[in-house]
């Protein structure tokens, strides 16, 4: 059952992406992107990443896609423009994309990575990569089970009561705790990143004052 649902979501994602890439009309492309985003959110849920799935829906479907469609709506005559670029390079691009796909497939199926890690008490622990996981990849969330991560972080870490809730309350509680404990630094640093983006956006989008406006502004300030 899980397998079937996984492939359904996968098909929605890939199908949406194909239509987005090959649509002549930008409106169709934007709408089919909705299915891609939706399918990815479904895949996140199947991988036990419920918080990520909700974020995906909120940010991509709720934010970016709406913005995109508003942009299309408010731009005159954009709907009739053929957005595909010249035909000459399409075959080359297609062959290269297929080649890359083949390499990725080879890497995916060729990887049987079972490796051992040193845990805190010096014992070795076998960690299996999910590509060749014996059972379904999504059946066991590896969240907080990483022995090395545990060994590294004796000082911090999610409180025990949060860990004991794992699997029952979803991941958002844990993510929140981790953001304010183990991953405090990246959490704070992201605010700098967002500030830089905001500053950059205002600098690029600001209106260059004309000479007259400058004169007015000066007379007002005096």
């Amino acid at each position: 059952m899980f397998d079937i649902i996984f492939y359904i979501f996968g098909a929605i994602t890939v199908g949406g992406a194909l239509v987005t890439a090959f649509a002549r009309n930008i409106v169709y492309a934007a709408f089919s992107l909705l299915f891609t985003f939706f399918g990815i959110a479904g895949l996140y849920i199947m991988a036990n990443a419920d918080f990520l799935a909700v974020t995906q829906l909120l940010v991509y479907v709720g934010g970016i896609l709406i913005l995109l469609i508003f942009g299309v709506m408010l731009t005159s005559r954009i709907g009739t423009v053929d957005i595909r670029v010249g035909t000459g390079s399409r075959w080359v691009a297609g062959i290269m994309a297929l080649g890359l796909f083949a390499i990725l497939c080879a890497a995916f199926f060729g990887t049987a990575a079972t490796h051992t890690e040193k845990s805190a008490d010096g014992k070795s622990q076998v960690v299996t990569s999910w590509a060749t996981h014996a059972t379904r990849p999504w059946s066991g969330s590896k969240w907080n089970q990483d022995a090395t991560t545990e060994a590294l972080k004796p000082k911090y870490g999610a409180p025990d009561e949060v860990k004991s809730n794992e699997g029952s309350s979803g991941t958002s509680v844990e993510i929140g705790t981790l953001f304010l404990t183990d991953y405090l630094l990246p959490f704070e640093v992201i605010s700098v990143l967002i500030l830089v983006s905001l500053l950059g956006a205002t600098m690029i989008a600001r209106k260059e004052p004309t000479k007259e406006e400058e004169a007015i502004a000066e007379s007002v300030s005096v």
């Binding site: 080879a106 049987a112 079972t114 490796h115 040193k118 070795s124 590509a131």
Partner: peptide
């Protein structure tokens, strides 16, 4: 410290 098999990934 050790990896028994190494894949192309």
């Amino acid at each position: 410290h050790s990896v028994t098999t190494s894949g192309p990934m």
